[in-house]
């Protein structure tokens, strides 16, 4: 019937009006006695409007149509004994009251609680997400410091090339120097060798001369010759002195 129209929104309407729509039968049975008698309200017009608003449909016409149809259906159901009022009807009434109370008082509490809880959880999740994004951004920043690394590398490469060339030149020169030094040392050693060789020769020469002289000295002929010569010299000297 009009059951689906009983929404949470409509649940904010007073309990008794719920009862009317919930179990239209029982109220009809009681000649619209108690639950339908509007409780003392300040503004009956807003009250009526709120009841009308609670009904499904768009225009007031369709709403009244629904209301009328459901009332007619309820009367028809009861008069034809399609709906039979018995013990359970009372329970239906109390259950409807309970549901309305729950919808009016507990549902908003639950809604607030659930919203608070969901906000809490979503805040935690969002916070962790922003923190993560920050961390990633930081990392991107630290990496982006190496952004112009290619140019630096190029420059460094040029420098290294130059260094290498200089190095090569250096090596070449150093080898030249080395070679010159080596040649010099060889020449020096030769010089030394030759000097020592000459010395040796001179020494041998003097020795052989001495030996020769000595051998000559021991030769009587030579002794005689020397003697004669010395005599001649002495004579010469004497002649001079005279």
């Amino acid at each position: 019937m009009n059951f689906c129209s009983l929404t949470l929104k409509s649940a904010t309407k007073p309990l008794l009006t719920q009862g009317v729509r919930y179990v239209p039968i029982s109220t009809n049975v009681r000649y619209l006695s108690s639950p339908s008698t509007p409780p003392p309200v300040k503004d009956p017009k807003t009250k009526a409007m709120s009841i009308i608003d609670a009904l499904p449909g768009n225009s007031v016409l369709s709403k009244t149509g629904i209301l009328g149809t459901s009332a007619a259906a309820a009367i028809y159901a009861i008069s034809n004994e399609l709906y039979i009022v018995n013990d359970e009807s009372i329970l239906l009434l109390t259950f409807a009251g309970f549901t309305a109370l729950m919808a009016k008082f507990v549902a908003p509490l639950y809604k607030d609680f659930a919203n608070a809880r969901m906000n809490k959880v979503s805040n935690i999740l969002n916070e962790s997400r922003t923190r993560h994004v920050d961390a990633i951004k930081e990392r991107i920043g630290s990496v982006s410091e190496l952004q112009n690394v290619a140019e630096t590398t190029k420059v460094l490469f040029d420098v290294s090339k130059e260094t290498l060339e200089l190095e090569a030149k250096n090596f070449e020169l150093k080898q030249k120097v080395d070679l010159a030094a080596e040649a010099k040392s060889v020449l020096d050693s030769w010089v030394r060798h030759e000097a020592s060789l000459r010395q040796e020769q001179q020494k041998q020469l003097t020795q052989s001369l001495l030996a020769k002289v000595e051998s000559e000295l021991s030769n009587p002929k030579f002794q005689e010759k020397v003697l004669q010569q010395s005599i001649a010299d002495v004579e010469k000297l004497f002649s001079k002195l005279k």
Partner: peptide
């Protein structure tokens, strides 16, 4: 999300 399914169930 609303409590309407409960009401539908009850109905």
């Amino acid at each position: 999300a609303s409590g309407k399914p409960l009401l539908h169930l009850i109905g």
